[in-house]
Structures are given as C-alpha cells and as structure tokens.
C-alpha cells in the first residue's frame, strides 16, 4: 500500500495473530470491518452510492446512455466499468499515476459481470437489434485503506440497486428506423434486477491462512492475495418467499502479488470466499432494502460527506 512502512517485528505480530484467528484489530479471519453505505447522493447520475469501509472511501455513480447493441448480441444491453483513482487518495495517483490500478479493477469488474448468470443484460434491451441501454458505472476512489476490490464490488451493487431506468417505448418506423418515446412522468421508471450481481472477495494469504478484508497493514504482510467473484443471492433482494436459494456461483478469479499458492490452499480459499460472499450479500441486501423503505416513507436528506 502506498506510503506504508512496517518493521519486521510489526509484520511478525500480524502474522502470528492471523495464525491464531485473532487479528490485530480484534477480528477473526472471516470478519469484515464496519462499513457505511449511503445511496442516491449524486443528482447528475441515475444511481449512486458511497461506501466507506474503514479508511477506504468510494463514490460510485451510474449514468445511462442509449446505444446500439452489438450485432452478435442483438438482445443484450451494455455495461461498462470505469475506475478513476483520485489524487485525493494519495499523491501517487496524480496525473496518470493511478491508471494501472484503475484499469486492473475495471477489468476485474467487467469480467465478474460478464456472465449472464451474474448480471442479466437482457433487462437493458429496448428494441432487439436496434437500441439498448448502456450503463456507465463510474467508480471514484477517494481514499485507500486496503481491500479496494471488495469495497468497489459492494458499492457498484448498491449503485445499480439504486439505478432507475426511464421507461422508453420503441416503435419501428418505416425504413427500419426506431422511434423512441420517453414518458413525460419522471417517476415512470423501472428498477434493475441486481439480485445476482457478483461480489468480489479478496482473500489475503498471510502465513498459511487466508483472511478476508485485509487492512492496509495486513496487505503489506502478505505475498499473495486471491480475488474471487461470487454471484449474489437473488432471494435476499426480493419479497417473494418461494425463490430457490441459488447464487453463490463463482464468476471470476484473479491473483495479486509475487507469491504462489498450492492447489489445496486455492480450493480452501475459494470455499472461504463463497462463505464470506454469501454473508456479505445478505448484509448488503438488508441494508439496501432498509434504505429504500426509508426513502419511500420519509424523504430523508442525504448526508453525503457532511456527516
């Protein structure tokens, strides 16, 4: 992590703690740090969320545009991820300094959302083969306190949950052109189905064990970390009781750092990741549904960065 220096003995202390399943801040190896989440704070975007996980601070905004679907996938919409590392986080990100990290995270998110079982792009279709919605998911990293990938995936899911796409009627005109009619009512919009949207879980290998949600200090002690993308559980996000308990499918994997892992450790780590992702998804769903209900009942004023 940027600008962080730890001595040998400090590192040893962290490694021993992980070995005994008791980390330096009192968590067990499967515990996340407390998070703060707020949705709907950017007026210029169709959906937005701000997530603060310990010292990691992110702002995600979703903007929509009308686009032409690609010829080989005429009935699918598009989604594009864009990460911007603000220099506010660390002076190293000044100019083009954060580009490498940004592209890495954006590609990982793109890969995780690629599968039709992870995110249903059919819901973005307006007129098959002619017009579709394109979602621009812009992720702004404002402060780095470790565990960026997990935080990004959580904030993206929250922002997509908050996104409202205007209802559009498409009529095929003469000559194959499509005429779009937008409703006059600004409340005439539909919500996205994000139940299956994947979450990324970073598993940091420290000593022989893996921990989730590493702090910046723990990240600097580990030689290798695995990032797994696990699809969400749709039953958490809907009121229907009879939905089968699906989800928990494994949609992407990536490795970071100079070290290597044994196949057995890999298997254990993936299983640990699936368990962590399911718990995380449940907690996220609860928080988001709560926030939506509150928004409907009383128009709460947004705190944003003023809190």
């Amino acid at each position: 992590m940027a600008g962080l220096l730890l001595s040998q003995s400090e590192k040893l202390f962290i490694v021993h703690g992980v070995q005994d399943d008791y980390r330096s801040d009192g968590r067990s190896n499967l515990d996340y740090r407390p998070m703060e989440l707020e949705t709907d704070l950017v007026d210029t975007a169709t959906g937005s969320a701000r997530l603060r996980l310990a010292n990691t601070d992110l702002l995600v905004a979703v903007k929509t545009e009308i686009d032409v679907p690609s010829p080989d996938k005429p009935d699918l919409g598009k989604i594009e991820f864009n990460v911007d590392c603000s220099a506010n986080a660390t002076p190293q990100f000044e100019g083009r300094g954060g580009d490498q990290l940004a592209v890495g995270i954006a590609n990982l998110m793109q890969a995780a959302y690629q599968s039709s079982q992870a995110f249903n792009l059919k819901q973005l279709c307006i007129f098959e083969g002619k017009q579709c919605w394109k979602l621009f998911v812009d992720i702004l990293i404002l402060e780095c306190g470790g565990n960026l990938c997990d935080a990004v995936s959580l904030a993206v899911k929250a922002a997509l949950f908050n996104t409202r796409i205007p209802c559009v009627k498409a009529i095929l005109m003469d000559g194959g052109d499509v005429d779009l009619q937008l409703s006059d009512d600004p409340f005439d919009n539909k919500l996205l189905d994000v139940g299956t949207a994947p979450l990324l879980v970073t598993l940091c290998k420290i000593g022989d064990k893996c921990v989730v949600d590493p702090s910046a200090e723990e990240e600097s002690c580990s030689v290798v970390s695995l990032i797994v993308g696990i699809t969400g559980t749709p039953s958490c996000y809907s009121d229907q009781e009879n939905l089968a308990e699906v989800g928990g499918k494994f949609s992407t994997i990536d490795m970071n750092g100079p070290g290597s892992v044994a196949p057995k450790t890999l298997k254990d780590a993936i299983n640990q990741g699936i368990v962590a992702a399911k718990l995380l998804d449940k907690a996220l769903a609860k928080a988001l549904i709560n926030e939506r209900k509150e928004n409907i009942r009383t128009k709460k004023s947004s705190y944003g960065f003023l809190k």
């Binding site: 210029t44 975007a45 911007d84 603000s86 621009f136 812009d138």
Partner: peptide, 14 residues
C-alpha cells in the same frame, strides 16, 4: 502543485 479534476459523472452529459 495543484490538480483540478472533474468526476466523469459530475456534469449532465458524461
């Protein structure tokens, strides 16, 4: 040293 940057979603048009 100053850097001014505008978030991609800050304006009406992206």
């Amino acid at each position: 040293n100053c850097q001014y940057s505008m978030a991609t979603f800050s304006t009406g048009e992206r």
